[in-house]
Amino acid sequence: MAANVAKKTAKKTPGQLANFTKGFIKENPVFVFLLGLCPALAVTSTLETSLGMGLLVVFVLVLSNIVVSLIKNFIPKEVKIPSYIVIISTFVTMVGLLTEAYAENLFESLGIFIPLIVVNCLILGRAESFASKNNVVSSAIDGLGMALGFTFALMLIGVSREFLSTGAIAYGEYLPLGVSGSIFNFDTHLFNMAVFGGPAGGFIVIGVILAILQAIDLNKKKKAEIARQKMIEEKKRLALERKRKKELESAGGQA
């Protein structure tokens, strides 16, 4: 539903669309700002746990952004940060209880990383730098976009790690989907590098992804640089031509 709202509003004002999508690539909290690396490493050994963590963050971030922007005018400046922490930890506690009740497998596998959403810099960061300065709708959209960007990053890491470590992508194991099984099940030892399911694999996978992003970024910059160089040369050439033309004209005049 929240996504629909976002789309509708996005149609009306193109600014909101950018506000929504910026979290995915341009300002991706994990890949660009290195926020929330703890959960990005710890709960991403499978796709499902990554998605589960992402959904919890969506819930907490959207709600806390809404609440913070709603009450931003009532909170005294002196106790701004403490109030945000209280609001966030309230939602995290609620989310933890709900998860334990309705998705106990996810709760088991996320373990202490559910209470640790409280200290995820992303959430406090958005409350502090965006929600406390903008209206409710923008804050909600910003929260949703950022959290989905976070989820996207987690899922990207999760899918790589699960595939590398097991050769398959399982579903229904942790989330209460009602069905379970696996897709892309390569029944071969080739895709069975258990190390990627473990701690070391987390660091390495994120490192590789960041390197690829950095390479793309560098590539772009390089292309832009080449284009700029070409433009400058073109300008120089034009200037030279003009100069020659002038010289020719002046020479012709003399003649």
């Binding site: 700002f33 922490i85 810099c121």
Partner: peptide, 10 residues
């Protein structure tokens, strides 16, 4: 450090 709770950063 990206920590927003940091009073010094504020």
């Amino acid at each position: 450090c990206q920590n927003f709770a940091c009073t010094i950063k504020q």
